[in-house]
């Protein structure tokens, strides 16, 4: 049980403590709210929700109305 064991045990207590504090802090700051809104991030006005992108193969059989650009 040298100094290194002391450091190991100490740090294995300290790290989770800091982690838990960070989680509590983040929750208090409201960082964990409205999480699922981020699911919309890949989409934008140009490539909006509900529109398939990357139609490359078998184009002739692709339903036409979904292909045309909205505007």
């Amino acid at each position: 049980m040298g100094i290194i064991s002391f450091i190991l045990i100490g740090s294995s207590l300290a790290f989770p403590a800091v982690a838990l504090y960070a989680l509590w802090w983040a929750g208090r700051e409201g960082q964990l709210r409205h999480h699922d809104k981020a699911a919309l991030l890949p989409f934008d006005q140009e490539e909006p929700l509900g529109q398939m992108t990357d139609v490359v193969l078998n184009r002739s059989s692709f339903p036409k109305q979904t292909l045309t650009n909205k505007a």
Binding site: A39, P42, D54
Partner: peptide
């Protein structure tokens, strides 16, 4: 996680599950 929703034009089923 990016291309699957992007190509089909639908968000990921459950964002909480991805967390």
């Amino acid at each position: 996680y990016y291309f699957l929703p992007k190509v089909i034009g639908r968000p990921i089923h459950s964002y909480y599950l991805s967390v």
